[in-house]
Amino acid sequence: MTRASDWLDGYIAAWASKDESDVREIFTDDAEYWFRPDDDRPVTGIDAIVKMWGDPEPSDPDHDLSVLIENDTLAIITGTVNYPGHEKYSNMWEVWFADDGRAKKFVEWYMSPRKRGGQDSAASGA
């Protein structure tokens, strides 16, 4: 396994468990968590990230995520996240690594598929 795939496995486990120790295993104490690259400010620090991860989800997400590219300091992860009955998102994540393999900066780039004639563009083949 690679640093990025190990981190992604940890992220998915922490996302499912919402367990504080799982979240602390993947983010540094001073990590920045950006929901969007143009946010005014990130969620900063592990305690704030743990608290934020405790917020309820709209439904249990289905996801198809994989590492696109990586080096020792940065991974780009892409894929989809579907919240059944709520929304489906296309994603690209930046994961900036500390020396110990935890994320020191995480940036989500996500969008909802374009709707055409009552269907999303992925379902209609567009």
Score class of each variant (00 low, 15 high):
residue 43 V to P: 05
residue 79 G to M: 12
residue 23 V to L: 09
residue 78 T to N: 10
residue 56 P to W: 05
residue 89 Y to F: 15
residue 120 D to F: 03
residue 31 A to M: 01
residue 93 W to Y: 13
residue 40 D to N: 07
residue 86 H to G: 03
residue 23 V to N: 00
residue 49 I to M: 09
residue 92 M to G: 10
residue 54 G to N: 03
residue 124 S to C: 15
residue 66 S to D: 11
residue 70 E to G: 09
residue 33 Y to L: 13
residue 70 E to V: 01
residue 69 I to M: 13
residue 31 A to S: 06
residue 66 S to L: 10
residue 38 D to N: 14
residue 41 R to C: 06
residue 78 T to S: 12
residue 73 T to Q: 07
residue 76 I to Y: 10
residue 96 W to Y: 12
residue 94 E to N: 06
residue 111 M to G: 14
residue 106 F to Q: 08
residue 43 V to K: 15
residue 126 A to G: 06
residue 51 K to L: 11
residue 39 D to Y: 01
residue 30 D to A: 15
residue 35 F to A: 14
residue 123 A to C: 09
residue 60 D to H: 09
residue 71 N to G: 15
residue 119 Q to E: 08
residue 97 F to A: 00
residue 24 R to K: 05
residue 48 A to L: 07
residue 56 P to Q: 04
residue 35 F to T: 13
residue 33 Y to W: 13
residue 75 A to T: 11
residue 108 E to D: 12
residue 28 T to V: 06
residue 30 D to I: 09
residue 43 V to C: 15
residue 117 G to W: 06
residue 65 L to S: 05
residue 85 G to A: 01
residue 97 F to Q: 00
residue 85 G to W: 01
residue 24 R to H: 02
residue 47 D to G: 02
residue 79 G to K: 03
residue 52 M to H: 13
residue 68 L to D: 08
residue 82 N to P: 02
residue 31 A to D: 01
residue 20 E to H: 04
residue 106 F to H: 14
residue 26 I to Q: 01
residue 38 D to T: 14
residue 48 A to C: 08
residue 28 T to S: 09
residue 64 D to Y: 04
residue 123 A to P: 11
residue 121 S to A: 15
residue 106 F to D: 05
residue 124 S to Q: 14
residue 77 I to A: 01
residue 18 K to Y: 04
residue 109 W to S: 10
residue 40 D to A: 13
residue 58 P to K: 11
residue 102 R to V: 05
residue 31 A to P: 00
residue 78 T to F: 04
residue 32 E to W: 02
residue 113 P to Q: 06
residue 77 I to N: 02
residue 35 F to M: 15
residue 125 G to H: 05
residue 93 W to S: 06
residue 99 D to Q: 11
residue 30 D to Y: 08
residue 110 Y to P: 04
residue 99 D to E: 13
residue 65 L to E: 03
residue 32 E to R: 09
residue 70 E to H: 03
residue 112 S to C: 09
residue 60 D to Q: 13
residue 104 K to W: 10
residue 65 L to I: 04
residue 42 P to K: 02
residue 77 I to F: 00
residue 34 W to A: 02
residue 108 E to H: 07
residue 53 W to C: 13
residue 41 R to V: 13
residue 19 D to V: 03
residue 23 V to W: 00
residue 44 T to Q: 11
residue 122 A to L: 10
residue 62 D to E: 14
residue 66 S to M: 07
residue 17 S to Q: 03
residue 62 D to N: 14
residue 114 R to P: 04
residue 31 A to Q: 00
residue 109 W to L: 11
residue 49 I to Y: 00
residue 34 W to N: 06
residue 57 E to K: 12
residue 98 A to W: 09
residue 20 E to L: 01
residue 67 V to D: 03
residue 20 E to W: 08
residue 39 D to S: 08
residue 116 R to T: 10
residue 120 D to P: 02
residue 62 D to L: 15
residue 37 P to A: 10
residue 92 M to I: 12
residue 75 A to V: 01
residue 73 T to M: 10
residue 37 P to Y: 04
residue 66 S to H: 09
residue 107 V to I: 12
residue 84 P to I: 01
residue 125 G to M: 09
residue 31 A to R: 01
residue 71 N to V: 14
residue 98 A to M: 05
residue 122 A to W: 09
